[in-house]
Amino acid sequence: MIYGWSIAKQDEYILEHICKMNKCLKTIAISIFSSNEIDSKSTQLEFIKKIEKYNKHNKRSIEILFFDACSPECWDK
Score class of each variant (00 low, 15 high):
residue 4 G to K: 03
residue 9 K to I: 14
residue 34 S to T: 00
residue 60 R to A: 14
residue 61 S to G: 06
residue 2 I to E: 07
residue 6 S to T: 09
residue 54 Y to F: 12
residue 37 E to T: 10
residue 41 K to N: 14
residue 25 L to V: 15
residue 60 R to F: 12
residue 34 S to F: 00
residue 45 L to A: 13
residue 17 H to N: 15
residue 7 I to H: 07
residue 11 D to A: 06
residue 13 Y to E: 05
residue 9 K to V: 10
residue 32 I to S: 04
residue 20 K to G: 01
residue 48 I to T: 07
residue 22 N to I: 08
residue 60 R to H: 10
residue 75 W to L: 09
residue 33 F to G: 05
residue 43 T to R: 10
residue 63 E to D: 14
residue 22 N to P: 00
residue 25 L to D: 05
residue 1 M to N: 15
residue 51 I to G: 02
residue 37 E to Q: 09
residue 29 A to H: 07
residue 14 I to R: 08
residue 67 F to M: 04
residue 28 I to F: 03
residue 7 I to L: 14
residue 73 E to D: 11
residue 4 G to L: 00
residue 69 A to W: 00
residue 5 W to L: 11
residue 52 E to Q: 14
residue 43 T to G: 03
residue 63 E to K: 13
residue 43 T to V: 09
residue 29 A to R: 07
residue 28 I to R: 04
residue 3 Y to G: 00
residue 50 K to I: 04
residue 75 W to Q: 06
residue 59 K to S: 12
residue 25 L to H: 08
residue 20 K to F: 07
residue 42 S to Y: 11
residue 28 I to D: 05
residue 74 C to G: 02
residue 9 K to Q: 15
residue 56 K to V: 09
residue 49 K to P: 00
residue 66 F to P: 04
residue 41 K to S: 11
residue 35 S to I: 08
residue 61 S to A: 10
residue 51 I to R: 01
residue 36 N to K: 01
residue 63 E to G: 05
residue 34 S to Q: 05
residue 25 L to C: 01
residue 27 T to N: 11
residue 67 F to H: 02
residue 16 E to M: 05
residue 73 E to A: 10
residue 14 I to K: 10
residue 60 R to C: 12
residue 32 I to T: 00
residue 47 F to E: 01
residue 15 L to M: 03
residue 51 I to W: 02
residue 75 W to H: 11
residue 15 L to C: 03
residue 40 S to M: 08
residue 68 D to Q: 06
residue 43 T to K: 15
residue 38 I to V: 13
residue 34 S to R: 01
residue 35 S to M: 10
residue 35 S to T: 10
residue 12 E to T: 02
residue 52 E to V: 06
residue 46 E to P: 06
